[in-house]
Design a protein around this nucleic acid. Sequence first.
DNA 1: TCTGGGGTCCTAGGACCC
DNA 2: TCTGGGGTCCTAGGACCC
Length: 414
Amino acid sequence: MEPATILHADLDAFYASVEQLFDPALRGKPIAVGGGVVLAASYEAKAFGVRGGMGGRQARELCPDLIFVPGHFKDYQRLGDAAIAILSDYTPLVERISIDEAFADVAGTAHLFGPPEAVARLVRQRVRDEIGLAISIGVARTKHLAKIASQVTKPDGLVVVPPENEVTFLHDLPVDLMWGVGPVTGRKLNEAGIRTIGQLAAMPGKSLESLVGVAAVQKLAALAWNRDPRVIATGQRARSVGAQSALGKQAFAAVVVRPTLRHLADRICSRMRAKELAGRTVTARVRFADMRAVTRSITLGAPVAATAILTEVAEELVETVKRDHRQERWISLLAISVSHLEPQSGLQLEFGLGLGDEHRRPGAPKGAARWQADRAMDRVRGRFGWEAIGFGDVVLEGRKSVPDAFRELAEKDL
DNA sequence: TCTGGGGTCCTAGGACCC
DNA sequence: TCTGGGGTCCTAGGACCC
């Protein structure tokens, strides 16, 4: 069996740790980044049950001494990049999966830097010395096991799982640590009496199929025996671009829907244009006040990247939701996503090759002209900032539960 | 515990083509 | 006019991840 050469490296309580690094007075204290909603919590806050995504009021109830800090989002990006760069000093095979987390395969570089465990020690020491943060690393033969190992060894840990110990290591752990087991599947498995990965591994596949489906059973069984076929994938491109906006409780009416969709389309299209991308499939999502959600999608004959066109397509999709759900009077979220992405340069547009003109009504402005107008706006924003120009709608004011800088952090590189 | 924002992948049925 | 089977794309919903 081949040796364990895959590292999973994960910065501990990343945003909160950065804040404690910057302000020594916050060290050892329960802190939360955010305000209306907790974006990240320190380990001291997690001990009280404070979690990311939690409402600010609830967090305060759980932890009365909780300190809220606004967040230094630019620095999160910078320090996250720096940590991944250290990992990249030891192998080109690095797959970043979020701002604070990456896989690396050091199989080919042992002759330069020594065995995987030595590399892991070096990386941890350098991230500590050069950045000032703790990073946990799991080393194993597969991505799945390396990831589980790093989670188990947190905070500030290093664990190597030798090939001969894989099953012993894995089988005592709770099933919900597995990739692909979330709240729903975890509950189903628990109800079937399965609490550990070992119990899942010992379970005959057939008996679980009715519970979680044939494909999921196959996948989970493979992972439970550490048969994970996934390899490190570098240079992955995004497959979709989206944006959403939580609304609290608002009327399901054009006065709310139209400006919100325009704002979302504007965010999405400016990102696509910056990367010279456009997409053919548009999906709109409407969540009602009781949290039930529906989606409508359409695949166009040509890709879109113009704000006005995407807005119109999304409006039509939301109209079909309204027709199908006439009794729904209140909504709590609107979202747009664009997929089937393809390269789309301005040059192609000038030669009349697309951007959604096919589905347009006669007499409406051409996609190319709209794209040009949008690009002009993009340039102004490039110089003076995103807020300098655009669709400044009154309804969008005072509704920001999450800072724009955080949204940008969450964006995947297109 | 009444829940933010950005993503990926899977499933299942139906349309359509050969 | 009725019939088979495989492949691909589209749409809607859902679970999951960070």
